[in-house]
Design a protein around this nucleic acid. Structure first.
Lengths: 110, 110
DNA sequence: TCCATCGTTCGAATTATTTCGAACCTTTCG
DNA sequence: CGAAAGGTTCGAAATAATTCGAACGATGGA
């Protein structure tokens, strides 16, 4: 009954600005973060722009978002529940999330 | 009298969010941008955290900032004048610069 | 004019990220 | 129990980013 692996997350005070910016500097990762603004989502509900990428790649994208402190990733049944760490990010870098997630993209990265 | 090379800059509408985030996701580049908040600086006045990095490396850091649209780099006498593209960035991504440049860093990237 | 200064560019070497398949684990359901 | 669903991890291969020296160009002053 003990659930799937408990993955490590940085605590609020450990979240680094440059690391967060890096995590969000990839269009695919940014798009994932944006899917979470309206509330948590099961990982299976999180869609990538290319639906054919293997699950290991998707998992790696999630790992970058998790280890940077942008997203929380907890076991949920047989799957995973993803959520934005909005409170932590707002406390640490006020306004950042709002600005980044609401901005118009401009070009995707070449 | 024609001055040193005129380097290419993206125009406002071409500035991409993810590219800007990437440019600022490096601690050294972020530090450079922060030195420009109070006004333009000659490149020679822009200090890196490690004063021993070769000029070609410094030039490359500047190139990333320039090609992303964060910084303007124009010839100025025998040197170069650097400035934040605040108006363009504020127009394109309102609030982003304020938030990022005023935020406390947290850890530098490992 | 000659030369030192300030910076860019190029190419090669190093290092970091990304991508993906295979192996593995847990939960759910028949 | 057994098998399918949903995900993580590992390692290797492919890509991308960084670093630096050397070569070059333009400017300003002696």
């Amino acid at each position: 009954m003990s659930s799937s692996p408990d993955l490590p997350h940085p605590e609020r005070s450990e979240i680094s600005l440059t690391t967060v910016l890096f995590a969000l500097s990839d269009p695919e990762r940014l798009a994932i973060a944006r899917q979470l603004v309206d509330g948590p989502l099961d990982m299976a509900e999180c869609h990538l722009s290319n639906p054919d990428v293997p699950k290991s790649t998707k998992s790696h994208l999630m790992k970058v978002l998790r280890t940077s402190g942008v997203v929380r990733n907890e076991a949920n049944g047989r799957g995973r529940r993803l959520s934005l760490r909005r409170e932590d990010l707002d406390a640490r870098f006020p306004g950042l999330l709002d600005v980044v997630l609401s901005a118009e993209d401009g070009d995707a990265k070449p």
